[in-house]
Computed example of a mutant assay.
Amino acid sequence: MADAYLSGELGSAVGFAGAGAALGAIAQQNDQLSQQVSSGQLKMNPDAANKAAEVYERKADEVERLALRADRLSRVEGLGDYRSGQELATKFGQKASNGSTGAADLLRKLTDELRRKADLFRQAAKDYVATDEQIGQDLQRGNQA
């Protein structure tokens, strides 16, 4: 499920700009899901929701490891002391991490969105259980009357 989610949204992205746009689309989807959960429009079977949340957490852990690896690429050495070599090293470093649109930065943002999605699924499961318990209490009161 998360693989399809990631490949569907980020798989069509071209370059860092495309990945940033796809990440924005993922954030918007999470915003919509959050609105549905908070308004009570979305409640999920706890088993299914928790399994989905676990998948998104595992994927977030994988992406987080990739972000750490990408962050290490921001320190490029061995391109010489000439100005052109230093400029090239700086450009490579910025592609890895520049504070907002580098590879490591985008991967960290994706990690956050994956964890957010997992939390939203867990909240939907809690809402399902709460609604189920409320219905049970209402039925009990109805039978006693």
Rank of each mutant, 00 (worst) to 15 (best):
Asp105Thr: 00
Ser12Glu: 06
Gly24His: 10
Met44Pro: 02
Ala22Met: 09
Asn98Met: 14
Ala21Tyr: 07
Ala70Thr: 14
Leu23Cys: 03
Gln94His: 11
Lys43Ile: 05
Ser100Ala: 09
Val37Asp: 03
Asp61Phe: 11
Arg83Tyr: 04
Lys59Asp: 09
Tyr56Pro: 00
Ser84His: 14
Ala70Asn: 15
Val55Asn: 06
Val14Leu: 11
Glu57Phe: 10
Arg122Asn: 09
Ser34Tyr: 08
Gly11Arg: 14
Tyr128Cys: 00
Val55Met: 06
Val76Asn: 02
Leu10Ser: 02
Arg69Val: 14
Asp31Met: 10
Arg122Ala: 11
Val63Gly: 04
Val55Pro: 08
Glu9Gln: 08
Gly85Val: 03
Arg69Gln: 12
Asp119Lys: 03
Gly102Gln: 14
Gly8Ser: 04
Ser38Lys: 08
Ala125Glu: 05
Ala49Glu: 01
Glu57Ala: 08
Gln41Val: 12
Gly8Leu: 05
Lys43Tyr: 02
Ala104Leu: 07
Glu54Cys: 00
Leu120Ser: 03
Ala67Thr: 12
Asp105Trp: 00
Ser100Met: 07
Ile26Phe: 08
Val55Thr: 07
Asn45Thr: 02
Ala17Phe: 09
Gly93Asp: 09
Ala104Glu: 01
Arg116His: 06
Gly11Leu: 13
Ala52Pro: 02
Asn45Val: 01
Ala22Val: 13
Glu64Thr: 06
Glu62Val: 04
Lys117Arg: 14
Ser34Leu: 13
Ala27Phe: 03
Ser74Gln: 14
Val37Cys: 06
Arg72Trp: 15
Gly85Ala: 03
Gly15Ser: 07
Gln32Phe: 02
Val14Phe: 10
Arg108Leu: 07
Lys95Tyr: 10
Phe121Met: 09
Leu106Trp: 04
Lys51Asn: 15
Leu10Ala: 07
Thr101Ile: 08
Leu106Thr: 02
Val55Glu: 07
Gly11Thr: 10
Lys95Arg: 15
Lys59Asn: 05
Ala96His: 00
Asp71Ser: 15
Ser100Gly: 09
Lys126Asn: 02
Glu64Gln: 09
Asp71Val: 03
Ala124Val: 05
Ala70Gly: 10
Lys51Tyr: 05
Met44Ala: 00
Ile26Ala: 11
Val37Ser: 04
Val37Gly: 01
